[in-house]
Nucleic acid binder design. Structure first.
Lengths: 343, 343
DNA sequence: ACTGGCACTCATGCTTGGTGAGTGCCAATT
DNA sequence: AATTGGCACTCACCAAGCATGAGTGCCAGT
């Protein structure tokens, strides 16, 4: 029994099932692929593949469909890289080139990815953790409140309103703010956010004692923003594509939609991927740790300006998915948007 | 034939149909409502109501269901205000009180509204148009680029990066920026955004000629932000509630999901409502101008700090909806979130 | 190791007939 | 004139029965 042919059969099953969304039988396989053997032989191969847990039959005397393990094998060993058409490449380039600011880039990216893959696209805003401080601005708001604005190298702006308890309209307060402004910037600009938080922790002992209380409060507030990175956001598009693929989910699509609303979950999924280089990661079905997404597959990768990967992006769809095409699209979009972000 | 009883029948039909989601017949009606008449009489009334276009039968010999016009009549004339339970009120208050900044307020609000109504909630970020300028900050970004930060009275921060073409690290540039900073703020702070844009238009003639070109560029950029209000954002929650109500939509829920992704459309729908005071507006089925939403109903209202209404919020669900409860929830949430925003 | 043949399984789709909720209409009653 | 009981009729819904055919597993032959 030829090992090679058995894998060819697996590949053929995956391809046909993805295309037709119907269990594929031995005869149908022969019509669409030149395997050079008879139906009976294919049946033997199928029985072996089923034994190995790579395919399964929904019921007696129906065709076979790939299992999660089957898709995994296909993705790892059987699928080549499918290049994008040049029309698609051009569409990506022109669409993203028209973006006018960071929000727009993210918005266009997520819509592009959704329409390209015809699935649900997820794009994480460039994350704070790997970016660094470009500037920190302190703006008195009229009363006793102070607006702290943090600007990162990725162009992201975070703001925070701080109750100081001091009357900031007084002249002494203005002078104090001016010196604070330069001190804080001196201690943070250019550092990664984590380092900057550390740098702020050492500042209080070096400055005018009169401003110490205020500075401590600002430092605490900044540290919170820097370390907590609570502000991470994700954007979705193409949710309606779930409907089209509705019957592919073993369960209803309700739980899937619910899971997609839990942005924290999505962030976690996108977060792990940014740590492992620029490869495209695929999570298939039950490989996924989150209950609502166990009948879906995720195709994700990292993106960002320069060599630093600062965020993740990807799509989620049914396990019955055209992995080569989807992976190519995800990779291409990530590459282009990274280029755009690098200015 | 008693006009009053006929309307009582309509009310009963709406209530029963909303509860059971099944066409209601004359006999079933009698079992659940004390109308004091016989089934035959109810049938006559039903025939009359059908004649008037307020109810319809999905097919011969099934019960009746309300038409859009029937719901409209019910909302306008037959439904009392249903007060929230005190437990619900407390839940609203405690949840929203815990919010730490504007993003968090919006996020909590939309989730709250979704879980309260068990429908899709839509919350618009406080809009720029009706708020006014609190502060404008100019921050050089190291090279020739300048970051313009706009802070509004509603606590919103808008940023914009500007290519000046000048080397901003030079000392003369720094002085120029300082004077620009005070000029721009002097011309805009406290004004509504529209007025501020106008004020900026007049500035260029009053300042140091050397800075004129730069100021013009800044003014143009600001004007664009102020007037275009392109940045308006909406946030959704509870999309999975659409599934539960899936069969209520004449069409599939696909088009509905698509429409919900068109944030521009949602903004338009929320926008018109902010102009007509703090009443709760209801759009029923085909009353809605947008194709994808013609089998849904929208319940919306305005909210915002103080007497100015600065944004809209609401829910979208099937026309078969518990209007009194939903309207009460929308109104209550709007009231509370407005109170929170007023600080 | 592969192939052809064959009996068997079982989901799917169609038809059929029965059931019951619900209607419309009419003549009788108040 | 409004209301009511009665009655024939309609039609969606369900369950059962039946045919179909795709697909399988297995075995004996090459």
């Amino acid at each position: 029994m030829s090992e090679d042919r058995r894998l060819a059969v697996l590949r053929a099953i995956v391809q046909d099932y993805v295309e037709t969304s119907e269990p594929v039988g031995s005869k149908a396989l022969l019509e669409r692929h030149r395997l050079g053997v008879s139906a009976a032989t294919v049946r033997n191969d199928m029985a072996a593949l089923e034994e190995e847990g790579l395919i399964a039959a929904p019921h007696t005397s129906a065709g076979r469909i790939p299992t999660d393990a089957g898709y995994r094998f296909f993705v790892d060993r059987l699928s080549g890289v499918k290049p994008l058409s040049s029309a698609e490449k051009r569409a990506i380039a022109t669409l993203l080139d028209g973006a006018i600011d960071l929000d727009d880039v993210v918005d266009r990216t997520v819509r592009l990815l959704a329409s390209l893959t015809r699935q649900v696209a997820v794009v994480q805003y460039p994350s704070l953790t790997r970016s660094s401080v470009r500037h920190i601005e302190l703006v008195p708001l009229g009363g006793t409140r102070l607006l702290v604005v943090l600007i990162t190298t990725t162009g992201r702006v975070e703001q925070r309103i701080l109750e100081t308890g001091l009357d900031l309209t007084e002249e002494t307060a203005e002078r104090m703010l001016a010196s604070l402004r330069s001190d804080v910037n001196g201690a943070t600009v250019g550092k990664t956010l984590a380092d900057a938080a550390g740098g702020l922790g050492e500042l209080p002992t070096q400055v005018d004692p009169a401003a110490r209380g205020l500075l401590a409060a600002i430092a605490a507030e900044l540290t919170e923003v820097l370390v907590e990175q609570r502000e991470e956001r994700v954007v979705l598009a193409g949710t309606s594509n779930l409907i089209r693929a509705g019957e592919d989910f073993s369960t209803s699509i309700g739980p899937v939609l619910e899971a997609l609303e839990e942005h924290v979950v999505l962030l976690k999924l996108l977060g792990t991927v940014t740590e492992q280089g620029d490869t495209v990661a695929v999570r298939i079905g039950a490989e996924n740790p989150f209950a609502g997404l166990q009948s879906t597959s995720l195709v994700t990768t990292g993106y960002g300006a320069g060599s630093d990967l600062v965020a993740g992006l990807g799509v989620v769809g049914p396990t019955r998915m055209d992995y080569p095409t989807t992976m190519a699209a995800v990779r291409a979009v990530a590459t282009y948007v990274s280029r755009i972000l690098a200015d």
